[in-house]
């Protein structure tokens, strides 16, 4: 039960000639909320990408669920990643994107109507995502990420574009997710979100 979900040891990443991460150590247990904090350019997003295998490490070891991250369906059925805004499917409304997410996953965590309600998108449910505001699109991304079942949430600046009221609601939603047994690792600049989490710097040092 308390086997770590993420184990990172001696991780180093160079982008071009620039060392971005150096000797990162990180262990995350099930049910934890971890906030990766630090100034711009300190390697928060790079660390998240390394955890998903999307960024190859220059050296060091990463184990997710006890094995190296693999870009396959089994891995992505356990890990929900919210990074850059996705390319939306052409011709689908906001609600249909959530419907699709619900149809693909056998046991969604909430109904589409509930997700639209929680993420305050009910009134814009029939709009195509490109016609939503930046904040609404981010809420749609979060809704899709939290609607699907997963054991680990990796969020890269989930507060991007959100108003202050919704940011504090998001902290509650992530708390509920962790209380249900899920694990959250997020890169964030939002002090409110980080306050509800164990804070780490990308160097691996606990803040």
């Amino acid at each position: 039960m308390y086997e770590p979900i993420i184990e990172v040891a001696g991780l180093a990443v160079d982008l071009g000639a620039n060392p971005v991460l150096r000797d990162v150590r990180l262990t995350v247990s099930p049910g934890e909320i971890v906030a990766v904090v630090g100034p711009n350019g300190c390697g928060k997003s790079t660390l998240l990408r390394c955890l998903t295998g999307l960024q190859p490490a220059t050296s060091g070891e990463i184990r997710m669920f006890g094995e190296p991250p693999a870009d396959n369906a089994r891995f992505w059925s356990r890990v929900a990643l919210l990074g850059d805004e996705p390319a939306w499917y052409p011709g689908l409304t906001a609600r249909e994107h959530l419907e699709l997410m619900g149809a693909v996953h056998a046991t969604p965590r909430m109904t589409v109507d509930a997700a639209l309600d929680v993420f305050a998108l009910t009134e814009r449910a029939d709009a195509v995502p490109l016609n939503l505001s930046t904040g609404q699109r981010q809420r749609l991304c979060l809704a899709a990420t939290l609607l699907r079942p997963s054991t680990l949430l990796l969020l890269d600046e989930p507060e991007r574009g959100l108003d202050a009221a919704f940011r504090s609601r998001l902290a509650g939603l992530l708390g509920d997710y962790a209380a249900g047994g899920g694990t959250v690792v997020m890169a964030t600049h939002d002090e409110g979100l980080a306050a509800h989490a164990r804070q780490v710097f990308p160097s691996g040092v606990t803040a």
Binding site: A73, W76, D84, P86, A87, V104, A144
Partner: peptide, 11 residues
């Protein structure tokens, strides 16, 4: 842009 495909997790 495989972001959505990763969220779906379909093989």
């Amino acid at each position: 842009n495989p972001v959505m495909a990763r969220l779906m997790g379909v093989a």
